[in-house]
Structures are given as structure tokens and as C-alpha cells.
Design a protein around this nucleic acid. Structure first.
Length: 500
RNA sequence: GUUCCCUUCGUCUAGCGGUUAGGACAUCACCCUUUCACGGUGAAGACACGGGUUCGAUUCCCGUAGGGAACGCCA
């Protein structure tokens, strides 16, 4: 049964990425749920860096992840500054690599109280044990012969230069550990589910389960939301908390995000990093909206949420234990909805970096922009799509698309183009109004006796370079007469080339 | 293999003993549109199976099946 949470002060949650790669969508969802809970409860959101794997962690990844988190709109109350990496908050340092002496001290405490021991098993010896277990179809668990050796003996070996890890002495007395999970209710683990796991590596660096437990305690973390794959780790961490006699934080294990093949979302499913979605033109608010709706339900029929609406409506009861498949189509839809709700100036702001990247140039005139975005905004479902549409408005861009070929071969096309050119030449202003354009179409139709798609497709091709696409009435006022003339003449040249 | 988790339309989900099983994405049709899209209307589409408990199970319990995850000196 799910347990109701008593309202509690001092809510402190954390998101604890490890800087060994780019920020992953699963990570974003974990961060989001933690954040929503913290902020909904007026609690503290801590960002802790789990960089005890020195070989794989680096500052490039760390900065990229913090940057992405910031881009998404997360603000952490405590943790490293996104640019300088300088710690902010009174429970620091927030990078585990800077807390090593803390872990070593606690490890000593466990060793002294006989709850942990030095183990001298080599990789090779463990490998042999594993193979034997596999052969006998037994579950593999490390059974260290050093578990019951005296501390004096161990110290003697270390003095001689042997390298040792510190293993936790998993208690053999208790039968089961019961976790009261916020999203799954009671989860029961048998003690022998895990063997004596490593606390400290031979290098003296802590392993995830140890540093995580120590830090959740010492940073006074009240609630931990993390993905379901950590369930077995939680058992280990519960044991560590028990060994120290510390009160356990509340845990909530979030359902996994799956790819279309129902396997854990990973690189082979395509885009999984936050940065890729950013690059593709998704809005941060849309990404968060989409992710929030996987595994969480607002209990209303609302589907489109701003970040702050998400914070306001969040509740633990909406959390769902079953895994969910990442549906990009739905993301696209949500993104489109967010795009349509955007103010013109915000929209332009989001679009600018994409224009820069594509090398597109546009009039500086703000009135032009206002009109352009207003006319076209509702047809986009992503910024990427928007850029592709705006491309047609750029003075410097005109390309005759392959699909125009057929149109150019129609016998009536040449007279339509001629009439269109004639209209442009005689039009007294640079900016053509939608009304003038409609009238022009009627005139051309009357003069050439061509109508329907035979009329409109050549004109659209003369404007956009292709017979299909954006509505002409919306787009004509945004392109100057001069540019339109240039485009017709290019097309006419191609046409005569093609037909001769 | 062992342990743990999960199971309502193709997908995300509502449902917390009595419902015509609700919504959304996607799909299809129609409307709007002198194209594409947007938008609008509508259609089709689900309780994995077998036992209990109960007057009554999608809902509670137990099995079975299926799927997933974890079993590192990764996190």
C-alpha cells in the first residue's frame, strides 16, 4: 500500500548526477521529480556531484550537465555554481571527490566496530568464485575469507604493502529488510540478496553506495527520488544507515523510462541526451512537461503545464510505479502547444540562435518580425520546423526544389509566371498586402484562363521554390517585391532551360 | 540462474468493489483550406490469464504467463 506522507518541515532533496557523460533524459526526469517535490513543499533542492569514479568523471561533463540543468530552468539552493563550480550552501563540499576524508573516517568507524573489514581478495580469485557459482547455477555473492579475520592481521598485511578494499559485513541475523517506498509501497528484500559489498576501493575512494549513504545523512536529505534500477542499492544503503544507527530518509523509486522496444532508454534508441533535444529546438518547458507526465499524473485532465504550474500541482499521489515508453510524437505535440502559447518576443529570442547557426539573415525591422511570427507561429511544432519555414523568407535564400519539376513542365506555367512577373513589376510598393495579392491572383486567373492548382502551384513555386508548403497569403507580405521578382526570374530561367 | 519491480486502447494514463471503463498522443474519416500544416468534428481501439474473497471484481488476495531491472574496486 502506498503510504501517506506526514507533512514535514525541513524537506531537503537532492539531485546527484555523476559527471561521466551528458545529461540524460532519465536524469532530467529524476531531477524534475525531486525538484517538483521540494519546491511544492517549500523545501530545499540540493545538487550534489557524485564524481568518485575519477577515471570517468571530468569537469567538461560536469559543466555541460549543470548548463543543461540551468537551461531547463532548475535552480539549486545548494551545490556548485554552474560556471565557477564554487560551492554554495552550508553542507558542502558538494563534490564527493572533495569529501574523501569524511568517507574514510566513517569507514574506519565501521571497521573499529566490526561492521566492516579489510578484504584482500584479488580480481582473479573473485572471478573464479563467480565462474563456480555460474557453473553450479547458484546466485553469485562474494564470500570473503577475510570477513572473520582479525583486524590486527589485516593491518599487518597492509603494512607489508598488500592492497585491500573495505567491505561491509552484511549482517547474517535479520531475515528481511522492508522498505516503505513512496511510490511502490512496501518492498521486501531478503538479507542474502547482497553479498559483502565494497565501501572503499583499494585506492581509498568510496564506492557509490557508501558515499551516497554518508552524504544523504550528512547533508540531511529527507527524501530521495531516484530511478527503479537503484532498488537493490537502496537495500545496501539501508544497511549502512542501520549500522550507524541513523534515521533513514524516505525513498521513492521512480519507474524506468523505456525505449520503443521496452528496454531501458539508452543511446541506441536515438536521442537521449538533453543537449540533443536542445539542439533540435525543443523548449525546456515542453521537455519538462512531457517528462513529468511519464510516471506522474496530475489527477486532472490538464496536459499542458508550465514549469511553475507543475510545481504547484505536484503531489506524491500522482506517482506511478509502472515503467513508461518514451513517445517522441507526444513530445512533439506538447512542444507545439508550448510554442503556440509563447509571446512573440520570447519566440524570437528562442529562434535567434538557430538563425545564427544557419547563417540566415533577415530585416532588422521589429514590425516585420512581429508580423512574421504572428502570421506563422501557429503552424510550427518545433523551433527546427520554424527555422525551416523562415528560411524561405530570407532574402539570400532561394532554391528550386525537385518537387517543382513537374510544375515547370505544365504548358500553362509559363504564362502564369509571366503574368505574376507582370504584376510584380507594376505593383507600386515594396510590401504587397494580402488583399493586393488576392486581387492579383484573380486578375492572373482572368488573364491567363488558368485556375486551381495549375495557377497556385506555379506561383507558390515562384515564391518558395516548391509547389507545396506555407500559405502564400501569410508569406507574401513578408518578402519584398524586389526579392520576389528576383525569384520569378530565376524560376523562369530554369523553366525555359527545362522545356527547351 | 537468483532476487526485486511492473502489467487498462499501439503509446502516456484516469479508475482506488457496482462506470455505456474516461482523457491525451498516434491512426483513420469528414469539415476548414485554391497546396502542406494548424484548427474543428467524429470513428476505431484496452482491463494478460487462471483461481479465490464477495451479492458483485478492472479494482482486494494467491498463483501462472509476459515484460523489465539489479546482481562491478560504475553510478
Amino acid at each position: 500500500m502506498k503510504e501517506e506522507l506526514a507533512p514535514s518541515k525541513n524537506i531537503r532533496v537532492r539531485f546527484a548526477p555523476s559527471p561521466t557523460g551528458w545529461l540524460h533524459m532519465g536524469g532530467v526526469r529524476t531531477a524534475l521529480i525531486n525538484y517538483l517535490f521540494a519546491k511544492n513543499q517549500k523545501g530545499v533542492f540540493v545538487l550534489r556531484v557524485e564524481d568518485t569514479d575519477l577515471d570517468r568523471s571530468n569537469d567538461t561533463y560536469l559543466k555541460a550537465q549543470l548548463g543543461d540543468l540551468q537551461w531547463l530552468g532548475f535552480k539549486w539552493d545548494e551545490g556548485p555554481h554552474p560556471v565557477t563550480l564554487e560551492d554554495q550552501g552550508s553542507y558542502g563540499p558538494y563534490r564527493q571527490s572533495q569529501r574523501l576524508s569524511l568517507y574514510q573516517g566513517y569507514a574506519q568507524e565501521l571497521i573499529q566496530s566490526d561492521k566492516a573489514y579489510y578484504c584482500f581478495l584479488t580480481d582473479k580469485e573473485i572471478e573464479v568464485m563467480k565462474e563456480r557459482a555460474l557453473k553450479n547455477k547458484e546466485p553469485f555473492r562474494v564470500e570473503s575469507p577475510y570477513r572473520n579475520k582479525s583486524l590486527e592481521e589485516a593491518k599487518e598485511r597492509i603494512k607489508r604493502g598488500e592492497s585491500a578494499v573495505v567491505r561491509f559485513k552484511v549482517p547474517k541475523v535479520k531475515k528481511n529488510y522492508v522498505l516503505k517506498d513512496i511510490v511502490r509501497g512496501e518492498v521486501c528484500f531478503p538479507v542474502d540478496m547482497v553479498g559483502d559489498f565494497i565501501l572503499l576501493r583499494s585506492s581509498g575512494l568510496p564506492v557509490y553506495n557508501f558515499s551516497c549513504a554518508i552524504d544523504d545523512y550528512s547533508m540531511k536529505i529527507s527524501h530521495v527520488f531516484r530511478s527503479e534500477e537503484h532498488l537493490a542499492n537502496t537495500l545496501r544503503q539501508m544497511m549502512i544507515f542501520e549500522a550507524f544507527g541513523w534515521p533513514l530518509p524516505r525513498y521513492g523509486h521512480l519507474s524506468l523510462i523505456l525505449g520503443e522496444d521496452r528496454k531501458k532508454l539508452s543511446k541506441r534508441h536515438g536521442s537521449v541526451s538533453c543537449g540533443e533535444y536542445k539542439k533540435q529546438g525543443y523548449l525546456p518547458a515542453a521537455l519538462l512537461n512531457f517528462l513529468a507526465l511519464m510516471g506522474w499524473n496530475p489527477k486532472t485532465e490538464q496536459e499542458i503545464f508550465s514549469f511553475s504550474e507543475l510545481v504547484d500541482s505536484f503531489s506524491l499521489q500522482g506517482l506511478n510505479p509502472s515503467p513508461g515508453v518514451f513517445d517522441k510524437k507526444k513530445l512533439d505535440w506538447i512542444n507545439g502547444k508550448h510554442l503556440k502559447q509563447m509571446k512573440v518576443e520570447d519566440f524570437l529570442e528562442k529562434l535567434k540562435p538557430f538563425f545564427r547557426k544557419e547563417g540566415l539573415e533577415f530585416p532588422q525591422n521589429p514590425i516585420w518580425w512581429e508580423k512574421a511570427i504572428l502570421n506563422l507561429k501557429d503552424t510550427f511544432s518545433s523551433l527546427h520546423e520554424a527555422v525551416n519555414v523562415f528560411r524561405f523568407l530570407s532574402d539570400s535564400f532561394f532554391e528550386v526544389h525537385d518537387t517543382a519539376r513537374e510544375v515547370l513542365l505544365w504548358p500553362s506555367t509559363s504564362s502564369v509566371l509571366g503574368a505574376w512577373e507582370g504584376f510584380l513589376n507594376s505593383y507600386p510598393q515594396e510590401e504587397i498586402t494580402p488583399e493586393a495579392f488576392s486581387q492579383a491572383c484573380k486578375d492572373i486567373q482572368k488573364r491567363t484562363e488558368v485556375k486551381g492548382k495549375l495557377l497556385f502551384m506555379p506561383i507558390r513555386t515562384a515564391v518558395l521554390g516548391r509547389p507545396q508548403g506555407i500559405e502564400l497569403k501569410a508569406v507574401i507580405p513578408l518578402i519584398s517585391r524586389k526579392v520576389l521578382l528576383k525569384r520569378v526570374s530565376i524560376l523562369q530561367k530554369q523553366q525555359s532551360h527545362l522545356t527547351s
